[in-house]
Design a protein around this nucleic acid. Structure first.
Lengths: 205, 205
DNA sequence: CCGCGCCTCATCCTTTTGGCTGAGAGAAAA
DNA sequence: TTTTCTCTCAGCCAAAAGGATGAGGCGCGG
């Protein structure tokens, strides 16, 4: 018998998971949470074997942060990330945060059930279409940007000019250009547009 | 008694909707479809009163196209778009395609139930947080880009330079610059980054 | 036939960007 | 205490992007 906690900000998805999981004989859904904070509280109270967690959780903590918190509990549950998006960086972050696996929501119910069972016994679960990409990512990891660089990249991706970024960060335009030069080098691109595109497709921002 | 058809490419979401809707006494879920094509076939066969349709449907037709097809059937059902994203352009397109409304998936089950009932009797349903933006959009409609301009904008948003766009489209760089100038004017922006950002946030591409 | 929208291209000029090099200050790690 | 990282800034130069203007060709509807 495996006990579960469902974490998703969409009531509909929670109901769907519950419905799907309760068709499987050996699962007990102990509870549902709509936010990361709620998830951590409930996990402490109910100590489920496995937590099913969406990456996007509306306001508050996201799935990665929630995973990290959950894994730091005394009775740390296995955390299985179940989400709609397959952003490389997020998958890696989730694994780093201690997730037991990463599944896309469009898989068949049986796969979800099977994955939970395997996660419960400590297996690392990755959807096949993700596994290879993740391993590739492992080989050539996304370069780590500094906090400041991420900040600049964020503004960049909303279309800000160097001047605007400088003004908002209260630094000189020269500084912004330096940050950008570093960002470009790390991401191996040569224009802001390409940096934006890469950042978005890899989930860097 | 209102009859329903659920269209979503995620089995989990379909189960969730079914579970949620069947708690309401006066709904009958006639069937589920995972693709737009399937949805149209089933609607012809079962003629439901209301079709609940996701915008993103994986491969094949998207929600907008599906809506248009459904509304062209002899026994046209009311189509209620139920999705995760709130991209302005998509909302407008959905309404134009004949959708009876547009709901975000994170609303409470009661709201979904209520909306379906209202959609069934011909009301236009918009989540409150969308309604005002849509009406604003009505006031200052997104300027219509020509096919060529959309094409250029697409390449722009993947980070292509003018030279690269020119090469791929087999035109001169001057032409690309002209297209961009038009795009910028229509979108009221002054840089490619901002054009990309606007295009993405409004769902223009 | 004419006008209009769309696509095409060019020239000239200004601003923005990006590449390169060098450098100081503070904080953290070795 | 060195070393290293990060953030800060400057100047120079070349390339790219953006603004303004004009113009030819083509197809479509009045």
């Amino acid at each position: 018998m495996t006990t579960l906690l469902i974490v998703d900000d969409h009531p509909v998805v929670r109901s769907g998971l519950r419905a799907v999981l309760e068709t499987a004989s050996d699962f007990t859904v102990l509870g549902e949470a709509a936010t990361g904070e709620e998830a951590v509280s409930l996990a402490q109270l109910l100590h489920p074997d496995v937590v099913l967690c969406d990456l996007r959780l509306g306001t508050g903590m996201d799935g990665i942060q929630t995973t990290a918190k959950l894994r730091n509990l005394d009775t740390a549950p296995a955390v299985l990330i179940l989400t709609t998006f397959d952003r490389d960086a997020e998958i890696l972050s989730a694994i780093e945060a201690g997730a037991a696996g990463y599944l896309l929501k469009d898989v068949a119910p049986e796969v979800i059930i099977d994955s939970i069972q395997r996660a419960a016994v400590g297996e690392l679960i990755l959807a096949p279409e993700l596994a290879s990409r993740v391993l590739q990512g492992m080989r050539s990891p996304l370069p780590k940007l500094t906090d400041r660089e991420v900040q600049v990249l964020r503004m960049l991706s909303t279309g800000s000019t160097n001047k605007e970024i400088a003004a908002q960060l209260f630094v000189s335009e020269a500084t912004v250009k330096t940050h950008l030069a570093h960002i470009f080098t790390k991401l191996d691109v040569d224009s802001r547009s390409r940096a934006i595109h890469l950042a978005q497709t890899t989930g860097l921002i």
